[in-house]
C-alpha cells in the first residue's frame, strides 16, 4: 500500500517534470523560431505555398461546416426564441455565437485536424529522412526555410478561415430563418446589426482566431520538429498535435473570453 502510494507520487513527479522539460523545450524553440521569422518573412513565396496547403485546402471543409453550424443554430435558436415571441432576435443570437465563439473555435479545431496534423507529419518525415539535416548542411537554416513559413501560414490562414466560417454560418442561418421559417428579412438583419458591435464582437473574434492560429501553428511545427524519427514517432506526434492543439484552443478561448467579454453587457 505504502509502496504503491510512493510509486504513484513517483509517477506523478516524473510526469510533471517531463511536462515542464517539454514546456521549456517549446519555449526555447519558440524563441529560435521568432529569430528565424525575420528571414522567413522576406520570402513571401514560401509562405504563399504553405498558405495554399494549410489555408486554401481547408477552405471547403470550413465553409461547409460553417454553413451547417449556422443552420443548426437557426433551427435550435428559433425553437427557443419563438416561445418568448422574439423570433426576430434569431439573427442576433446566431451572429453573436458565431462571431464571438464558434467561428474562431470551431475553425481552429477543424484546422488542427485538417492542416496542422499534416504539417506535423510533413516536418517529422523531413526530419526522419534527414532532409532537415541536409538543408542545415547546405547552410540553409531549416527553421527559417521550412518551419517558419508553416507557422506563419497558420497565423495568416486562421482569421481568414474564421471569417469565412462565420459568414457561411450567418448565411446558413438566414437560409433557415428567413427563407424557410419566414422570419422577416429586414428584422433579421437590422436586429443583428443593432446588436453586433464591430469592435467588441467582430474584432475580438478575429483577434481570438489570430491567437489560435499562433498556438496551433506553434504546436504543429514543434511536434513535427521534435518527432522521434520513426513511423511510430511521427504517428504519435501527429496525434499529439491534434489533441494538444484542441485543448489549447479551448483553454485559450476561455481565458480570452473572460478577458474580452467580462463586464460587457
Amino acid at each position: 500500500m505504502i509502496s504503491q502510494l510512493a510509486e504513484f507520487f513517483q509517477d506523478l513527479g516524473h510526469f510533471v517534470t517531463s511536462r515542464i522539460d517539454r514546456l521549456g523545450l517549446a519555449a526555447r524553440f519558440a524563441g529560435l523560431l521568432l529569430l528565424a521569422l525575420g528571414v522567413s518573412i522576406r520570402r513571401a513565396s514560401l509562405i504563399v505555398r504553405e498558405v495554399y496547403f494549410s489555408g486554401v485546402r481547408s477552405l471547403s471543409i470550413v465553409a461547409v461546416s460553417g454553413l451547417f453550424v449556422g443552420m443548426v443554430l437557426a433551427v435550435q435558436g428559433y425553437e427557443v426564441l419563438q416561445r418568448y415571441g422574439s423570433a426576430e432576435s434569431l439573427g442576433v443570437i446566431v451572429a453573436l455565437s458565431l462571431v464571438r465563439e464558434l467561428g474562431p473555435v470551431v475553425t481552429a479545431l477543424l484546422f488542427a485536424g485538417r492542416a496542422s496534423s499534416a504539417v506535423t507529419a510533413e516536418i517529422g518525415l523531413m526530419r526522419a529522412t534527414e532532409q532537415l539535416a541536409a538543408m542545415d548542411m547546405m547552410a540553409v537554416d531549416p527553421l527559417s526555410r521550412v518551419v517558419a513559413p508553416r507557422f506563419l501560414a497558420a497565423i495568416v490562414s486562421m482569421p481568414l478561415l474564421a471569417a469565412i466560417f462565420s459568414t457561411a454560418g450567418v448565411i446558413g442561418a438566414w437560409i433557415i430563418g428567413v427563407q424557410l421559417i419566414g422570419i422577416d428579412d429586414g428584422a433579421f438583419w437590422s436586429q443583428m446589426q443593432a446588436n453586433v458591435d464591430v469592435r467588441i464582437d467582430v474584432l475580438n473574434g478575429l483577434l481570438k482566431s489570430i491567437v489560435f492560429g499562433t498556438a496551433v501553428g506553434l504546436i504543429s511545427v514543434f511536434e513535427g520538429y521534435f518527432a522521434a524519427p520513426t513511423a511510430e514517432g511521427i504517428a504519435s506526434a501527429t496525434t499529439r498535435t491534434v489533441v494538444i492543439s484542441s485543448l489549447s484552443v479551448l483553454l485559450l478561448d476561455l481565458v480570452l473570453t473572460v478577458m474580452m467579454f467580462r463586464g460587457l453587457s
Binding site: T129, Q131, A133, M138, A139
Partner: peptide
C-alpha cells in the same frame, strides 16, 4: 559556421532528397 558549410558537401545515407 554556415559560411564554412558552403565549402562542405555531404551525401546522406539515404540521399535526403527533398521529397
Amino acid at each position: 559556421l554556415y559560411g564554412l558549410r558552403r565549402k562542405i558537401g555531404m551525401l546522406f545515407q539515404f540521399g535526403a532528397l527533398f521529397t
